[in-house]
């Protein structure tokens, strides 16, 4: 996998306020979710990656080049900013076409690219209406269209799904996946966990300007050794099962819920999964479900940021 963005001790501060603090990370091909609460530093990182800000310290390279004031590089990236900002009086088509032309395309090429991008985000019917008349979801789509129209090698999307309805979200997520599959690196920022979870397992987690975790969600979860893992078991005889498991040294805590659900905390999930089938078989207990609720992004996020 190629490194699309490399950050080395990257910091950005605004006077006394720290936007990003000493971040060293690599973003590779495919889709990467940039996750964090509001003010975590996501937009700062994306602004650094798209040359809108200069690092206060450290270095960032995008596709092997420094992005600050580098139009040649920026013309290879598509950026969908977070701000709900447009020039007054333009229709969706005029907006996308102008930005394609401002990228140096010919008039005909820009029109063709705009039409194709508008079709991809399913705005064909409304492209001739003024953007001021659009719903928030439509404005998000047209912003995404302008980012796509230049056939980018890297798509940088800052909260692209904000304000969209569920159908629109699903459509855009599917579109981002198509682009990723076709070889475009995609970076999507969001503070909504399930959005990112629907797109990728590969995340960069920011909190208060610091990189808290990076990589696959399950790998990150496994690395949190001091944090006990939760395992959910559904069995008719959950109380008997709880009694049997209570004596095991790898079980840290047990909680029986609604008679059939047992929540178990363990520091050694591998041993639990290894020994549990034997315990169930020896005691003739039927178990209908075994799952790990804290292997989800939400749980990992909560553990890492201390804000469940």
């Amino acid at each position: 996998m190629n490194h699309v963005i490399e950050m080395n001790e990257l910091s950005k501060w605004y006077g006394e306020v720290i936007g990003l603090n000493n971040v060293t990370a690599c973003i590779r091909d495919g889709i990467t979710g940039l996750l964090g609460h509001n003010g975590a530093g996501k937009t700062t990182l994306l602004s650094l990656a798209t040359g809108q800000l200069r690092p206060s310290r450290g270095e960032i390279t995008v596709l092997g080049e420094r992005p600050w004031n580098n139009p040649r590089l920026l013309s290879r990236t598509g950026y969908c900013p977070e701000a709900d900002a447009f020039w007054r009086g333009l229709t969706g088509r005029q907006f996308v076409t102008f930005l394609a032309r401002a990228n140096g395309m010919t008039r005909r090429g820009a029109l063709r690219a705009a039409d194709a991008a508008i079709d991809l985000v399913r705005m064909g019917e409304d492209q001739h209406r003024r953007i001021a008349e659009y719903s928030r979801g439509m404005r998000q789509r047209i912003k995404v269209a302008q980012a796509l129209a230049r056939r980018p090698e890297l798509l940088v999307l800052d909260e692209p799904l904000a304000g969209m309805d569920p159908v629109g979200r699903a459509e855009l997520i599917a579109l981002f996946k198509r682009f990723a599959e076709s070889g475009t690196a995609v970076i999507v920022s969001s503070h909504i966990l399930h959005e990112v979870e629907a797109m990728t397992d590969n995340i960069l987690l920011l909190d208060h300007g610091q990189l808290v975790a990076e990589g696959e969600v399950h790998e990150i979860r496994d690395s949190l050794e001091e944090q006990s893992h939760q395992v959910l078991l559904r069995a008719r005889e959950s109380r008997r099962l709880a009694t049997l498991l209570a004596g095991q040294d790898y079980v840290a805590a047990l909680e029986v819920q609604d008679g059939q659900t047992l929540i178990l905390h363990t520091h050694d999930p591998d041993r639990l999964y290894r020994e549990l089938p034997g315990i169930l078989a020896d005691n003739n207990i039927a178990c209908s479900e075994i799952s790990s609720p804290d292997d989800s992004l939400e749980a990992v996020f909560g553990y890492l940021t201390g804000r469940p």
Binding site: P71, S75, R101, A102, N103, G104, M105, T106, R108, G109, R112, A113, A116, A117, L120, L148, A149, R150, R151, R178, F179, E181, S182, G183, T184
Partner: peptide, 18 residues
């Protein structure tokens, strides 16, 4: 090749046109 299907060729890019 897949992306060629998603979007047409950008054609020649010129800073002067931009």
């Amino acid at each position: 090749t897949e992306q060629t299907v998603l979007l047409p060729e950008a054609g020649p890019i010129s800073p002067t046109r931009a």
